[in-house]
């Protein structure tokens, strides 16, 4: 903003170069300042506060706040609720990851060579990415309803018994994961399609002349190795997204039945904003952050290495 005033032509070249340096410095600082201030306020300061909180037993509205050191973290290690929610989160990721990546890849490979129908399928599969997950989760809840939902209606019609998808502890995580896959497949498909279209057509033709007879040969010789970097990227983004699962749990199960679908973010949400155990929630948040950073570091590491040919 302050740079707008300093655009006067200087007569002497030497002075002019110095002035240009100065203008650049001033303009640079001026332009960067608002963003820096906001980053400070919304990221850096909160992070510092979070770190401090995690060493205290602070509760919202509480008067006596004590410094606990690492007690919160010690508590977290043995906390059965945290253990359960971490385990649930990993089970969820373990189902969503292969599902969303594998199906995304499958759909992309099948769709890649289609000409007329490609747009149609692309729109269909991408639809869940743009739609409001909460609204669709409500609809899923209804679809999976034991008595009223069409899925159980179908099962009944085929002579199977009803399945209580959302109230049977053994089924609830796989059900939520299926919805997670439903939401992510289109996104991954588009990433894979972009990766596929970057593979030169020539290579497939050369492979065909060299004797790659079947689709499996083509896939193993060309598609899979050349899609490697894309695949790594998709795997990591999918892991992070799946690790952050919250919406479906909050709307459909609220962690139930009996905590069998309580995931990490939901546990943090309950501790922090329902029970107002700010200190403990801060410690849990840092644990959450550690996992996300682990994925992110993995990502930068892999993306650095991705130009391997």
């Amino acid at each position: 903003m302050m740079a707008s005033a300093v655009a006067i032509a200087a007569p002497v070249p030497v002075v002019r170069r110095d002035r240009q340096r100065l203008i650049e410095k001033l303009a640079g600082c001026g332009f960067a300042f608002p963003a820096f201030l906001l980053l400070l306020l919304t990221n850096l300061v909160p992070l510092a506060v979070l770190l401090y909180l995690s060493f205290t037993n602070y509760e919202l509205g509480a008067l006596d706040t004590r410094f606990l050191g690492l007690d919160n973290f010690r508590k977290a290690v043995t906390d059965p609720v945290l253990r359960r929610s971490l385990a649930n989160t990993f089970v969820y990721v373990a189902i969503v990851l292969p599902g969303a990546v594998g199906l995304g890849l499958l759909i992309a490979v099948l769709l890649h060579r289609r000409k007329r129908t490609r747009t149609f399928y692309e729109v269909v599969y991408f639809l869940p990415v743009t739609s409001t997950l909460i609204a669709m989760a409500t609809v899923w809840q209804f679809i999976l309803h034991p008595n009223l939902g069409p899925v159980n209606g179908m099962l009944r019609a085929m002579g199977f018994g009803e399945i209580a998808f959302l109230s049977e502890p053994a089924y609830v995580l796989p059900t939520l994961a299926a919805i997670g896959i439903w939401q992510l497949v289109g996104f991954n498909m588009v990433l894979f399609l972009a990766g596929l279209s970057a593979i030169p057509r020539d290579l497939y033709e050369a492979a065909e002349i060299d004797g790659c007879r079947s689709g499996i040969d083509r896939f193993l010789t060309i598609t899979w190795p050349l899609l490697g970097p894309t695949t790594m990227f998709v795997i990591i983004t999918t892991s992070i997204t799946a690790f952050k699962v919250f919406d479906t749990v909050a709307v459909m199960t609220r962690g139930g039945p009996m905590g069998s679908s309580e995931v990490l973010l939901y546990a943090i949400y309950l501790e922090g904003y329902q029970y107002f155990h700010m200190g403990y929630a801060a410690a849990l948040t840092l644990i959450f952050l550690a996992f996300v950073l682990l994925f992110s570091i993995l990502q930068t590491f892999v993306l650095e290495r991705r130009v391997h040919y």
């Binding site: 980053l39 919304t42 990221n43 300061v45 909160p46 992070l47 506060v49 979070l50 909180l53 919202l60 952050k244 919250f246 973010l265 943090i268 922090g272 904003y273 700010m278 929630a281 801060a282 948040t285 959450f288 952050l289 996300v292 950073l293 992110s296």
Partner: peptide
């Protein structure tokens, strides 16, 4: 900042 999801600064911001 790219690596920090909103859920992390949420608690202090809320306070």
């Amino acid at each position: 900042g790219l690596c920090i999801p909103i859920q992390v600064p949420a608690l202090p911001l809320y306070m």
